[in-house]
Design a protein around this nucleic acid. Sequence first.
DNA 1: CGCGGCTTTGATGTTCATCAAGTAAAGTGG
DNA 2: CCACTTTACTTGATGAACATCAAAGCCGCG
Lengths: 231, 231
Amino acid sequence: MKITHTIKACENCIFRNLLFGSLNQQEYRLVNSVRAEKVFFKGEIIKHEGDNLTSFLYLRTGLVKLYKTDHAQKDHILSIHKPGDFISLLHIFSNEFYPYSIAALEKTEVCEVSIDSIKNLIKTNGDFAIDVVKRMGIISDEVISSRFNKAQLHIRGKVASIILYFSDQVYKAHQFKLPVTRREIAELIAMSTENVIRTMSEFKNDNILQFNGKEIIISDYERLLNISKMG
Amino acid sequence: MKITHTIKACENCIFRNLLFGSLNQQEYRLVNSVRAEKVFFKGEIIKHEGDNLTSFLYLRTGLVKLYKTDHAQKDHILSIHKPGDFISLLHIFSNEFYPYSIAALEKTEVCEVSIDSIKNLIKTNGDFAIDVVKRMGIISDEVISSRFNKAQLHIRGKVASIILYFSDQVYKAHQFKLPVTRREIAELIAMSTENVIRTMSEFKNDNILQFNGKEIIISDYERLLNISKMG
DNA sequence: CGCGGCTTTGATGTTCATCAAGTAAAGTGG
DNA sequence: CCACTTTACTTGATGAACATCAAAGCCGCG
C-alpha cells in the first residue's frame, strides 16, 4: 500500500514563478539539484504529525488534507490544500516538528526542497525573501479567514462553503467528483457526520444539489452562495 | 476622545531583540529614524478594517483586539494580542488593505515602522529576513492553532481557554482584572453573551472562579485547565 | 439623577449530537 | 469470481447544547 514513485518533469512547472520567479539561473539550478518529487496515491500519508520537518513542500497536482488525530482516534481536519499551495511554508522556519499530519485525498504530486537551501536563498536573495514573506501572508490569511468566517455560520452555511471551495477554488466547475467523504467534511467543520449528510440531503430536496454516484452537481449556485454567506 | 500621545523611550525596549536582534547599529538607527510611537487609551481604535496599511505595528504594552464588524453591526473578534506581538506582520507584505479593525482593550503603547524600511531590511539583511519568516510562522501558528483547538470544544471549554489565556499568557497570575466584557468573550468564541455569562456563573457555583468587581480569581486552576482541554 | 451599556436569570424554541438500525458500496482473502 | 468484512451512507428518534426573547438590577458617566 505504501507505493511512491518519483517524477521528473519540473522545469516547466506552472507553479515555478509562484515562489521561485526571482531566482537566477544558478540559484534555480541549485534548487533543482536538491529537489525531490514524489507521487502519493489516494489515502497515502505524506507526513505524520510530529515528523521532523527537514523540507519544504508544494503541490503540483492533486489534493491533500492537514489534520490531527485526538486521544479518541478521531481526526480533526485543519484545512484542505490544492495545487500551487505551499504546505509547510508556515511552520518550516519556526517549528522543528510539523504539528499536523498530511494525507493525499487524490493522487498527488509533491515537490520537496530541503529547508537549508531555502534558508540560504532567503539570506542571499532579497527579492526571494520578499516573495516568501508575501506567500506566507497569503497562505496564513487563507487558513485564518476561512476558519474565522465558518465559525460564524450554522451547519448549512459551513457545508455550503466547503462545496463552493471545491467548485470555485479546486475544480472550477459546477459538476465534479467530491474528493472527500461526508465524514471528512464533518471533521473539517467540527460537526457530526450524520448532520452533514442530513444537510446535503436537504440541499438535494431543495434542488440546490444533485448527486450521481460520487458526482456532485450544483443546480442552484446562487442559492448555495447565499447560504454560504448568510446561513 | 481621539487622544494619542507620542512616547520616546525605545532604545532599551525589551522586545527589541524579538525581531530586530540581527540588525547592526546603522540599520537599527535607520529603523529608529522612521519609527513612530503612539499611546492609545482603552476603547480607542488603532486601525479601521480596510485602512491602507503603510506601516508595521508592534505592541510595547497593553492589549488589543482584532475584529470585523458584520452587516448587522455585530462585531466578531479574531484574536487578542499582548505585548511583544507583531500585529500586522501577517498581512503587511501581501495585502494593501488591512482586513481587520484593531482596538485597544487597555492603555496600549504601539510602535510603528514604515513598511518600506522593513522591506529594505529584508532585502539587504538575510539574517533579519530569516527572523521575519520565523516570527510570521509563530504568529500564524498561534492564531490558527488557537482557533483550531477551540473549534472542537463546547462553550465551557472555550470560556475556560479564554480565561487561561489571560492568566497564563498575559497577566501570569491567578488573579487579575478581566480586560474584556462578557460580550467581547462571546464575540471571540462565536457564542451568545447570555451563555458566556451563564457559563461563568457555573464556574463560580462550582468554586472554580470567584469574582470581585472586575477582578477575577481562579480558585481551582487544575479544574479550569482540565475543562479547557476536555470540555 | 437619568441614560446607556454591562450583567444576570428565567423561559422557550432551535440547532445539533448521539444512539440505533439498516442499506449500499468498496475493499479483502480464498 | 464469490463470500466476507469493513467502510460509507442514510433516516428516524431522543435529548443535550445553545440562541433568542424578555425583564430587571447594576454601574459609570455626563
